[in-house]
Design a protein around this nucleic acid. Structure first.
Length: 894
RNA sequence: GCGGGCGUGGCGGAAUGGUAGACGCGACAGACUCAAACUCUGUUUCCUCACGGAGUGUCGGUUCGAGUCCGACCGCCCGCACCA
């Protein structure tokens, strides 16, 4: 064998796998199936290290499961609709379609050299009409099932870009792209009825045993179940039609502490009053302004306005409460109206204090007496408290008990009823954008909103659009929207909204089971391949994508597109950490200019970022770091917003000092990125794959370091050299220690298997390092050495498949390593004949003895007490207790 | 504010309640070399010449035995944030 040259062998083996169709997924009735899926990428055009880590993890699992005898499905596709393509078209011209498909081609070309075991014949992009046409078909099916509907909703409207913005696209009240002040507009929007499944989506979380606890918790909080009482106040002095106000409360036990009622500025009553009362109109308008994330930061101040209307307390018609319009009441939770109990709610307390409303405690701490409150008293509902103004249940009870008693009491008196509420809202999917899946409905003057006929699908996006003016190109296209009503045949107009791109990613996992079918799914395929056995992706999708997918699987089942067993589509979920890198900055002088462009002062210092490869002073082993210097301190003093840099080195090119900030997520703006393509061309894909799996546990962030990548390459080169050496051993070499080597091999098999099974890839790799060292030092017979290195190749193959194939073939392995059955460890070889037992005296290790593994405890005791060191440390003291844990440890207590 | 997670060498990190620091990086020493790089061999938690002692954020508890379990505190990270 010659030198280790990854470029040559990697291309060779990738071609060999392709030619043999090694990774083509097939329905095989004789094998158990295994479906591994990594969250598919957005085709930005370049892969990054995060992709490498994500897809390598999935690949390790896929290759391992294939070797275990599973029929593996490991597909790849593209989450290809979305705003960036339109933004690119607006900024640089061109068409989103060309931009997107061009990026897909580029990214595929960058991914292929990684040698992933992907069945590329199943590849698709969500912007393929074949894909989104099926999505439209399901949309229509869901309309029929009542899972899709239209309603008016308040949205963030960007008046410049003329589109709806998601909450996270609104920054400080302005559109993230246009910088225009965002307006709250009420528009008719399409919604998926995810709230219909609130209870089920919450309850089913308990069954997702192989999901991270954190994700389940985040989803549970997001769904936000609450149990409370809904009842009506009779009004006094309200306009016609508002004889009653429905309120919802989770603390009906505090009804006797009520001091006011409050309604949302968006409540129908508020709207009615606004029409006739200019003062109220002004207040309500003020509340509606902003209304985005900025406001939350700006001020938590509670504001309200007394409407003059009064309501009667349900327990005592003579007791009247004022009705306020308050800025902190949300219209779309509960009924949009509340009763305020300031004593036991922080918000109500703040409000009552401001408007001098009464604050009467309903309960006090167990054993305490009623006193004036300086702040709201809000103990856990599980805590026992003493009710001083209770009306149901015993005086001494927990909040939970009191709530239940209060609901029962009120229901028996005919005052309202117990209600379960959820925080989860219906999913608004309308987007006034071009590059998305068209909503397949038609607006007819006579028939209203009508679904397109299925035989007319897909409703394709027109190609002849321009992006030179803001707004939705579909809306201003001269002919596209013009169509005929599928119902009456009259001239009608297409819906010009497209779907949120989260819809596209809510069912792609199901489509992979029959990616080119003429229906969304095919029953036999979905039945065989679903569910996804292992899903891998970023924690950032913990809520939206994963919750939408869970909803969609249920909706697909309801419309006959998925079997019942697939309503929870992902059996196991793994969320991987990010790839991080140090950040390098230097200070650069820039002239400061006034408004006319005239230079005012010579220089001001600016922080500029540098790519890792620009920082040549960072030579390994040169200890380039020094702690804070006065220069850095001076810079920081002059630039209070600058990030604190705590170390520096030198930029070799011009001698400028470079400051190092600790690792952060790789990002283009900070230039702390390492291009996977550079790594692959320098060291090969196997090095990149091995490195991203080593060192850190996969759920945690991994720091990319140049020295770490080099170390990996060196290690693979050593394995290569070791393989050559073993290959050149004379066939009749006897050596010694065959048995020990077999034991070491069995142990390695066991530990690597455990490591992969448990998603502890870093530990599996640590084992492989250790085993390689053992093998390198061994002097066993030639057959034993060959067997050991073949096993090493197999154990390495999920991580470094190319070098593994070369070693396998060179050492006489049969067929393709990727298809060889995973090695099994002989249990007999995992147990050592003799064990070393440490001896503790009073819990401190003092000696050790070597005994037969199966030696009876009584005999072990004898040997331990006869040990020289033990005798020395005991110094004649009597032994109080002697603990022998077989195969583990001995503890002598004196 | 609420919820969750995490604190182990110079660094990334290992340790079913049973020898703390596997494995890797870095560092140090030696071999090879005219020399350096590469490569190979070895050392590397701290204190102590040594014997020995201390040690997993801090304090306390349970246990024959605690990084691991329990309680309080400190620090860091993440998620949610007017949800009545």
């Amino acid at each position: 064998m010659s030198r280790y040259e990854p470029k040559a062998i990697e291309a060779k083996w990738q071609a060999a796998w392709d030619a043999a169709g090694t990774f083509t997924a097939r329905r095989d009735p004789l094998k158990p199936k295994y479906y591994v899926l990594e969250m598919f990428p957005y085709p930005s055009g370049r892969i990054h290290m995060g992709h490498v880590r994500n897809y390598t993890m999935g690949d390790v699992v896929a290759r391992y499961k294939a070797a275990q005898g599973f029929s593996v499905l490991h597909p790849m596709g593209w989450d290809a609709f979305g705003m960036p393509a339109e933004n690119a078209a607006m900024e640089r011209g061109g068409h989103p379609k060309e931009w997107t498909y061009g990026n897909i081609a580029d990214m595929r070309a960058q991914m292929k050299p990684l040698g992933l075991s992907i069945d590329w014949s199943r590849e698709f992009a969500t912007c393929d009409p074949e894909y989104y046409g099926q999505q439209q078909a399901m949309f229509i099916d869901m309309m029929e099932k009542g899972l899709v509907y239209r309603k008016n909703a308040v949205v963030n409207w960007d008046p410049v870009d003329m589109t709806v913005l998601a909450n996270e696209q609104v920054i400080d009240g302005r559109g993230w792209r246009s910088n225009a002040l965002v307006e709250r507009r009420e528009l008719t929007q399409w919604f998926f009825k995810i709230s219909e499944y609130s209870g089920e989506l919450l309850a089913a979380l308990d069954g997702l045993k192989d999901w991270p606890e954190k994700v389940r918790l985040m989803q549970a909080n997001w769904i936000g179940k609450s149990r409370g009482l809904q009842f009506a106040f009779d009004t006094v002095g309200a306009p016609a039609g508002f004889a009653q106000i429905e309120v919802y409360t989770t603390r009906p036990d505090t009804l006797l502490g009520a001091s006011f009622a409050a309604i949302s500025p968006d409540h129908p009553l508020a709207k009615s009053l606004e029409a006739t009362n200019p003062e109220i109109a002004a207040f309500v308008a003020e509340c509606r302004r902003g209304g985005t994330s900025a406001e939350a930061l700006e001020t938590a101040e509670k504001k309200g306005m007394d409407t003059g209307i009064r309501v009667a307390h349900p327990f005592d018609p003579a007791w009247e409460l004022p009705v306020y319009i308050a800025n902190f009441i949300l219209m779309d939770y509960g009924t949009g109206a509340i009763f305020g109990c300031p004593a036991h709610d922080a918000r109500d307390f703040e409000f009552a204090t401001k408007y001098a409303l009464p604050i009467k405690p309903v309960f006090v701490a167990e054993g305490a007496e009623e006193t004036a409150l300086a702040e709201a008293f809000v103990p856990l509902k599980s805590e026992k408290v003493r009710y001083v103004r209770g009306f149901a249940g015993s005086d001494l009870q927990t909040g939970d008990e009191a709530v239940n008693a209060a609901i029962a009491h009120c229901e028996s008196k005919g005052i309202g009823k117990g209600v379960t509420n959820y925080r989860l809202r219906d999913w608004g999917v309308s987007r006034q954008r071009y590059w998305g899946c068209p909503i397949p409905v038609i607006h007819c003057a006579a028939c209203g909103v009508v679904a397109e006929k299925k035989e007319n699908l897909p409703v394709k996006l027109p190609d002849d659009v321009t992006f030179d003016i803001p707004g939705n190109p579909l809306n201003r296209h001269p002919t596209w929207a013009a169509t005929i009503c599928p119902n009456c045949g009259a001239a009608a107009r297409r819906e010009t909204d497209t779907m949120d791109t989260f819809v596209d990613s809510s069912w792609y996992y199901a489509r992979f089971t029959s990616p080119h079918a003429a229906t969304p799914t095919v029953a036999e395929d979905a039945d065989y391949w679903m569910n996804v056995d292992q899903y891998i992706g970023g924690i950032e999708h913990a809520i939206l994508h994963l919750l939408y997918s869970r909803f969609f699987a249920r909706a697909m089942h309801a419309t006959g597109h998925l079997p019942a067993k697939a309503i929870e589509p992902f059996n196991a979920l793994f969320t991987q950490g990010m790839v991080t890198h140090e950040i390098y900055t230097s200070m650069e002088g820039v002239p400061r200019r006034d408004a006319n462009g005239e230079v005012v002062t010579d220089q001001m210092v600016r922080q500029v970022y540098h790519l890792p490869e620009e920082v040549e002073g960072l030579l390994p082993g040169k200890e380039p770091r020094t702690f804070l210097t006065s220069e850095v301190e001076a810079y920081l003093a002059a630039n209070p917003t600058a990030e604190r840099t705590d170390a520096y080195t030198f930029l070799a090119q011009n001698g400028r000092r470079v400051y190092i900030t600790p690792s952060a997520k790789m990002s283009k703006s900070k230039k702390n990125v390492v291009d996977p393509m550079n790594i692959i061309s320098a060291f090969g894909a196997d090095t990149a794959r091995w490195f991203v799996m080593s060192d850190s546990p996969p759920e945690r962030d991994v720091e990319w370091t140049a020295s770490g990548a080099e170390a990996t390459f060196k290690h693979l080169s050593r394995v290569w050299a070791l393989c050559s050496r073993i290959g050149e051993m004379p066939a009749d070499h006897k050596g010694e220690g065959d048995d020990a080597l077999r034991r070491a091999t069995a142990k390695a098999v066991h530990e690597v298997t455990q490591g992969i099974e448990g998603f502890a890839f870093n530990k599996a790799i640590a084992t492989l390092y250790g085993f390689t060292n053992t093998l390198a030092k061994a002097n066993a017979s030639t057959p034993a050495m060959k067997e050991a290195i073949r096993t090493l190749a197999q154990l390495m193959s999920p991580m470094t498949p190319h070098i593994a194939e070369s070693i396998w073939t060179y050492q006489g392995g049969t067929g393709i390593c990727a298809q060889a059955p995973w090695p099994k460890a002989d249990p007999a070889l995992l147990v050592d004949d003799t064990v070393i037992l440490p001896i503790q005296i009073n819990g401190k290790r003092r000696a050790e003895i070597s005994v037969a593994a199966d030696m009876p405890a009584a005999e072990v005791e004898k040997i331990a007490l006869a040990n020289e060191d033990v005798i020395k440390f005991l110094a004649g003291q009597p032994v109080k207790k002697l603990i022998v844990v077989p195969g583990r440890i001995i503890n002598v207590v004196v």
